[in-house]
């Protein structure tokens, strides 16, 4: 009796479909945010080192390269936010009796919270 043809595996599965590429980008967003955390800690370090060190750090941050880096960082941060909020109603579905709370409502509530946090952070820092 002839045997079946064995199951196939692809080493390049993660670039073979857009859905999988999107998955890898989503996961990388977490790693990119860790890279941002390093930049943030360098800023905190410069503040603790005094006014001159902070002023030097601000000069560095003003370079076109650093602006470009932060543009990329913000895009990955938004990718993280959007995909994370999409996942919330999947992992924590709420029901009122028989009725499912609409996922869009739960996602919307998360964006409201995010907007609030953004206002607080910016208001706390900008005089």
């Amino acid at each position: 009796m002839a045997s079946p043809y064995p199951r196939r595996r692809s080493r390049r599965w993660f670039i073979e479909r857009w859905a999988y590429q999107r998955f890898v980008l989503r996961e990388l967003s977490g790693v990119v945010l860790a890279a941002y955390m390093v930049l943030l800690l360098l800023l905190v370090s410069s503040v603790h080192a005094g006014g001159q060190a902070f002023a030097d750090h601000v000069t560095t941050l003003r370079s076109p390269l650093m602006i470009a880096v932060h543009v990329i960082l913000v895009l990955f941060a938004l990718l993280h936010t959007v995909t994370w909020f999409q996942a919330v109603p999947k992992g924590l579905p709420l029901r009122r009796g028989e009725e499912k709370v609409p996922p869009a409502l739960m996602i919307g509530a998360n964006y409201v919270a995010m907007a609030g946090a953004t206002v607080i952070i910016v208001a706390a820092l900008v005089a």
């Binding site: 941002y36 800023l43 601000v58 003003r62 932060h70 993280h80 909020f85 995010m114 952070i121």
Partner: peptide, 24 residues
């Protein structure tokens, strides 16, 4: 936590700080 505040933090430290909108 990151979903809620990371975009705001990057906005602040990557753009508002170099624009000198944040005082030492």
């Amino acid at each position: 936590v990151l979903a809620l505040i990371a975009p705001a933090l990057i906005l602040a430290t990557g753009f508002l700080v170099p624009a000198e909108r944040v005082e030492f």
